[in-house]
Simulated assay, not measured.
Amino acid sequence: MEIRVEDLTVTVAGRQLVSDLRLRVPEGTVVGLVGPNGCGKSTTLRCVYRALRPSAGAVRLDGDDVWTLSARDSAQRVAALPQEQHMEFDFTAAEVVAMGRSPHKRAFERDTDADDELCARALRQVGVDHLAERGYLTLSGGERQRVLVARALAQQPKVLVLDEPTNHLDIRYQLEILALVREIGVTTLVALHDLNLAASACDLLYVLADGRVVADGAPHEVLTPELIAATFGVRAHIVPHPVSGAPQLLYSNATEPKGSPRCRDDVPS
């Protein structure tokens, strides 16, 4: 399933957070949004998974405007992992993952053996099957994050929308989660702070600054010293990864260049 974002504009309390933003996520690819804090990444993702209605423009899934879909149809197509998740009740990890099956069931319909197997497989895929009966609120930040990724996988979506999915994860699980996303082959739009992870995990990158796209293309085309200096205010030396060949960035401090874009705060979660 292809994602198209067309001329997206979001204005909140008189402040324009995203302006005329356009991007495309071809079917089966992993596309990354990168940029400084507050540049519109989370705002854009919220519009894709219908948590925020844009002021103008459209988000389309295989041509269908997401706001013309029913909530159920949208949830069957798109699974989202927001940056902040709040849970009041201490469900077990297995119960949290089982929530991913809700879009595929009628009200009060019980889980089937097939549902149970899908959820168990999702827990195994992210390496937390041993935590299935643990209370979600007793888990560490990294364990909770993996449980939430498992919930998204159990949803069996055609599109994944991930906002900083590697938050709270140690380097092993950062690499494993992103490798898993690539392995399952679902169309994925992901916001990442770590440019080296983005370069290794994504087929295409869109760089946002001041609520607009300032560059897009393959990681080796986009991640240049000039763009890093102008957008992030640091010097970067770009070297190829010795195994994958993906561009990797080595940083040094730099004074923010004159005229570099400054970014607005995103909409609070």
Rank of each mutant, 00 (worst) to 15 (best):
Q174N: 09
C119D: 11
L69W: 09
A246L: 00
G141Y: 07
L169R: 02
A51K: 05
K258M: 10
R134Q: 12
V128F: 07
V30Q: 00
A209M: 02
L123Y: 05
T188G: 05
L192S: 04
G142D: 01
S42M: 08
A56F: 07
L189I: 05
E2G: 09
V59G: 03
R212A: 13
A93M: 15
A191L: 07
L175D: 03
G14T: 03
N253K: 15
G32E: 01
N37A: 01
E117A: 13
V234L: 10
V126M: 09
F108Q: 09
T44W: 09
Q16Y: 05
N37Q: 04
L208W: 08
H237I: 07
D163H: 04
R235M: 12
V10W: 03
R172C: 04
R172Y: 13
P157S: 08
L192T: 02
A120I: 09
P261W: 01
R53P: 02
G100V: 00
T187N: 02
L180K: 08
E133R: 14
S55N: 07
G28M: 07
P242T: 09
G141K: 03
L192F: 06
T188R: 06
P54C: 04
R182I: 08
Y49S: 01
D116Q: 15
G211A: 11
S19Q: 15
V128W: 01
H241E: 08
L205T: 03
